[in-house]
């Protein structure tokens, strides 16, 4: 589990550093980052990732469009995706789940919530 290659997608450099450091403290040392959905898709063309953590509100391509694009490809149907966002309105969560997100975290999050959700998603696969 600790050898997972994770992609953290967020337009905020502060959030990317926080997420990456939290993951590293939890033992996930192989983490790459992307600034938005478009950047993430480009990175996925060159690298294989085992787990995606994505924000929703991002320029160029937002998290929802990104998840839709990822799920549109057969090879990514089972790729675990965790959405980490400030959006916590019911309709948003419904949209995200319909798009194919595996779980959903509301910012600001705690390190335990992030670790638990990753474990939970991996256990259910």
């Amino acid at each position: 589990m600790r050898n997972l290659k994770i992609l953290a997608v967020d337009d905020s450099p502060t959030m990317r550093r926080i997420i990456i450091n939290t993951l590293k403290r939890a033992g996930f040392s192989d983490v790459d980052e992307a600034t938005d959905g478009k950047d993430a898709l480009a990175k996925m063309q060159v690298d294989d990732f085992d787990f995606i953590i994505t924000d929703w509100n991002m320029p160029e391509m937002d998290g929802l469009a990104f998840v839709n694009s990822v799920r549109a490809e057969d090879k990514y149907k089972a790729l675990p995706i965790l959405m980490v966002t400030t959006r916590c309105v019911k309709d948003d969560i419904v949209q995200a789940m319909k798009a194919g997100v595996n779980s959903y975290i509301v910012k600001p999050f705690t390190p335990d919530t992030l670790k638990d959700k990753i474990k939970q998603i991996l256990r259910s696969r």
């Binding site: 905020s12 502060t14 959030m15 926080i18 939290t22 400030t86 910012k107 600001p108 390190p111």
Partner: peptide, 16 residues
């Protein structure tokens, strides 16, 4: 140190 770092999420939220 982790608690301090996690609290810095305020920056992204304030920025929004």
């Amino acid at each position: 140190a982790e608690v301090i770092q996690i609290a810095l999420q305020f920056q992204d939220i304030t920025s929004q």
